[in-house]
């Protein structure tokens, strides 16, 4: 078991009587890539700000690199690099100058800073644009410069808040690859917040799901899916010429089918425990119905995630309805 580098104990932050983060207990090990996953407004950013000591927690303890960030934020910030979600740079300065400024704020000597900045800019692939004003950078370039900016102080932990926001798919892949590479080569602990499950899935060792300031589940992505949704199910969508009651009844009687639903016009959705496409198509042709198309809708993780949160909302609404 490796050592804990971040530990939170019953961390709570209350804004106007509304808990933004509610008794959060979590520990992250050194050298790990941890993903904070959750919808907007779940309290991910608030937690990150508390880790950096930029927001005072209402109650609870937190330690980063063995230092309490509430009482000693400066020491924590010396060891932690943070990439904000809406990062900006001084637009009238070049990318290189921006990095030098950050370095000088970290009391790094000018020669050393120049050396590191050059090396990092090469690493993130900005060597051609390093003497260009950051005002002319594209979103993806800014994000990469942001990563270089975070790394210039050679941190032990980097915290990335929505690092893939607004970048094209190719850029996202490159960025994620870079993050993973840094994690492996320099043994930097990475804390990543996002609401894109499949991106998180690609690089994170462990994931914590955050809803309404509470940590609902944590573990690696596969465990999580099991934990949250139990048995996985698939849906087969069928398009037939004419929908008859007898066809629906026959489909319903099949082994393993848990539900049959008429969607609209000539579409039927069959929910089953596993992929039963061949059996279903056979049944339909036996029933003398014309089969136009058949498709198995397997749940992607993204979809599961959406289903999960949608389900929650409905649950809550019904709860509210019951109360009133």
């Amino acid at each position: 078991m490796s050592e804990k580098i971040i530990s939170l104990d019953k961390l709570t932050k209350i804004y106007d009587d509304q808990p933004a983060v509610d008794r959060l207990s979590l520990s992250i090990n050194k050298g790990e890539v941890f993903g904070l996953l959750g919808p907007n407004g779940a309290g991910k950013s608030t937690t990150i700000f508390m880790l950096l000591g930029l927001i005072q927690p209402t109650s609870g303890n937190l330690q980063v690199c063995g230092i309490d960030s509430t009482t000693n934020p400066i020491d924590v910030k010396r060891r932690v690099g943070y990439l904000p979600d809406d990062l900006g740079f001084y637009q009238n300065m070049t990318g290189f100058e921006n990095l030098l400024y950050t370095a000088s704020l970290n009391a790094i000597s000018r020669d050393e800073a120049k050396r590191r900045a050059k090396q990092l800019l090469e690493q993130v692939g900005l060597e051609d644009a390093m003497h260009k004003k950051t005002g002319k950078y594209s979103r993806g370039m800014k994000q990469r410069l942001g990563l270089a900016d975070v790394l210039i102080k050679e941190p032990e932990i980097i915290i990335l808040d929505e690092p893939t926001l607004g970048i094209d798919p190719k850029g996202v892949q490159e960025l994620l690859k870079l993050i993973k590479q840094l994690n492996k080569e320099k043994d930097i602990t990475v804390l990543l917040s996002s609401h894109h499950l499949h991106q998180v899935q690609q690089i994170c060792d462990r994931v914590g799901i955050f809803v309404d300031g509470k940590l609902l589940a944590k573990g690696n992505v596969n465990e999580l899916a099991q934990q949250l949704f139990g048995v996985r199910s698939s849906v087969v969508q069928v398009e037939v010429g004419e929908i008859t009651e007898s066809l629906l009844a026959r489909l319903n009687q099949l082994d393993g089918v848990t539900g049959v639903e008429k969607v609209d016009g000539s579409f039927i959705e069959v929910t089953c425990q596993e992929n039963m496409t061949p059996v279903i198509s056979e049944t339909i042709t036996q029933n003398n119905a014309r089969l136009y198309s058949i498709r198995c809708k397997d749940h992607g993780l993204d979809e599961i995630y959406h289903l999960y949160f949608e389900g929650r909302e409905i649950d809550e609404n019904t709860k509210k309805a019951k109360i009133s």
């Binding site: 930029l54 990062l87 900006g88 001084y90 704020l105 102080k153």
Partner: peptide, 14 residues
Amino acid sequence: NKGTLTRLMSQPVP
């Protein structure tokens, strides 16, 4: 507004 304040504040600066 430019988003530089959060970046500045996450540096070890009082």
